[in-house]
Design a protein around this nucleic acid. Structure first.
Length: 345
DNA sequence: AAACCACACAACCGCCGCCGG
DNA sequence: TCCGGCGGCGGTTGTGTGGTT
């Protein structure tokens, strides 16, 4: 695509250059442009993007060069589908910081703010729309907190268990291709995992490192079978080893690359196996079983009248499946119903 | 086979804060 | 102190791709 832009309007926008009328290219980057940028940065380093663009002979704005480098060409950019662990982390961090994508991205090694933002918009907001509630509404946050996130945890556990099974039976060709969860090694990031109500306290910490290690056994109020009571057990949840040789690629690619010429130096590394949809998460029969002492504000969900409670809507039929409906029937309504899980409701 | 649609994501835009002259 | 350039950030758009009808 050869999209060019005449830049000479003399305003304060940093894309402009008054000294000369430059035909600045826009749109998808070509292979040649990418290689030029890569080579230039390899020799001169990054930064000072406007002068870099000029010096490298790129007919691009400095801003465009920066974006291309940071979001695509950087060697440590990690591509492929967002893993379960990353999904969980994104939900958690978004609950804490909101749309501060760059800050969230700091805790997902190799992921860019753009990628996380896209994930949020395409996946999370889409499902909020399906539920006919605002993504910032209490209803949706509760849905994430009590259904989606626990389901993710459950999936992660299942994947870890599968991984263990694979280790025990390495000849299994089916299982061996179905998980990206690896065992923990050195350089571990520990993430004490708290619920949304605790997001503002000091218990939530994320330390940079090569791995992310989630500890799910704290004051969230539940404990998983894998958890130890120490809070930092290495037995609980482990993400992919972001930097092992299998998962980190010099330059990644994706299935929807708009630049058809760029594949030659890209390496496909999609991991489709841990991709879990929102509905997959919330329709699990055991989605709630990880929360033995959680207060669940069902009234805030406006059960009888809420738009999502609509038998004609597929979202409803998926969300409030038989088991969940039995649960709700057992509650009998009321204000801020407390679910006493230990009584077997 | 073609048309249509939904999705994913690369890239752009506008705004803002920082910094140096 | 002011001003302009720059980098960073969040929001938005455009488009290629794959699936469905």
């Amino acid at each position: 695509m050869d999209v060019k832009r005449r830049v000479n309007n003399g305003n304060s926008d940093d894309d402009n250059n008054n000294e000369e009328e430059m035909d600045l290219r826009r749109g998808p980057w070509t292979v040649d442009e990418d290689l030029t940028l890569i080579n230039y940065i390899a020799n001169h380093g990054e930064g000072r993007w406007n002068s870099l663009a000029r010096s490298a002979g790129l007919k691009r704005t400095g801003k465009s060069c920066r974006l291309r480098w940071l979001n695509y060409l950087r060697p440590d950019v990690r591509r492929g589908n967002i893993t379960l662990e990353e999904q969980l982390l994104i939900l958690e961090l978004h609950a804490r910081w909101g749309n501060r994508w760059s800050k969230i991205a700091q805790y997902l090694p190799g992921r860019t703010d753009n990628e996380i933002k896209n994930y949020w918009r395409t996946r999370v907001q889409k499902h909020a729309k399906q539920l006919k509630c605002d993504v910032n509404s209490k209803q949706f946050k509760d849905t994430m907190r009590f259904l989606w996130m626990p389901r993710l945890v459950e999936r992660i556990q299942a994947a870890a268990a599968a991984s263990t099974a694979i280790a025990a039976a390495p000849d299994s060709p089916t299982l061996s291709a179905t998980t990206s969860v690896t065992t923990v090694n050195n350089n571990t990031t520990t993430i004490p995992y708290n619920n949304y109500d605790n997001l503002n306290n000091n218990n939530f910490e994320v330390h940079s490192g090569n791995n992310i290690h989630m500890n799910m056994s704290n004051n969230f109020g539940y404990a998983t079978p894998e958890n130890s009571s120490t809070g930092t057990s290495s037995d609980s949840f482990v993400t992919q080893d972001y930097y092992n040789n299998n998962n980190v690629h010099h330059v990644g690619n994706n299935n929807n690359n708009n630049n058809p010429n760029s594949d030659f130096y890209h390496q496909q590394q999609g991991n489709n196996n841990n991709q879990v949809s929102f509905m997959d998460c919330i329709t699990s029969p055991s989605s709630m079983s990880l929360f033995p002492h959680q207060e669940m504000d069902f009234q805030a969900m406006e059960l009888p009248n809420t738009p999502w409670i609509n038998n004609n809507h597929t979202t409803f039929s998926n969300f409030w499946n038989d088991e969940n409906m039995l649960l709700l029937q057992g509650l009998g309504g009321g204000d801020n119903v407390r679910i006493d899980w230990e009584k077997g409701i």
